[in-house]
């Protein structure tokens, strides 16, 4: 399965958990700590390495806090698609 990674804009996050609800891999969790807005932001449980980069969390997020990366074999990529 493809491996993915997400980056969460922690200060923008409102801890609504819609991303968590949308995540098929169940690898998102609310933090114990609060951000500057007073919300508990989500974070990715990275040790499980089960994020597939499907981007469903980003599609669900009302605050556009999530950036999603996915690993793909190099040969399948057109050069213009190598965004990172």
């Amino acid at each position: 399965m493809a491996k993915g990674r997400i980056v969460i804009d922690v200060e923008r996050c409102k801890g609504c958990e819609l991303c968590r609800d949308a995540c098929p891999q169940d690898v998102l969790m609310l933090s114990d700590k609060f951000n500057n807005k007073g919300y508990r932001p989500v974070f990715l449980l990275e040790h499980d390495n089960e994020c597939t980069g499907c981007a469903l969390c980003a599609i669900a997020c009302p605050d556009a806090c999530i950036t999603v990366y996915r690993q793909v074999p190099q040969r399948r990529l057109h050069p213009a698609q190598t965004a990172v």
Partner: peptide
């Protein structure tokens, strides 16, 4: 050599 692609 997998490459990381920005998907969202």
């Amino acid at each position: 050599k997998p490459i990381e692609k920005l998907v969202y």
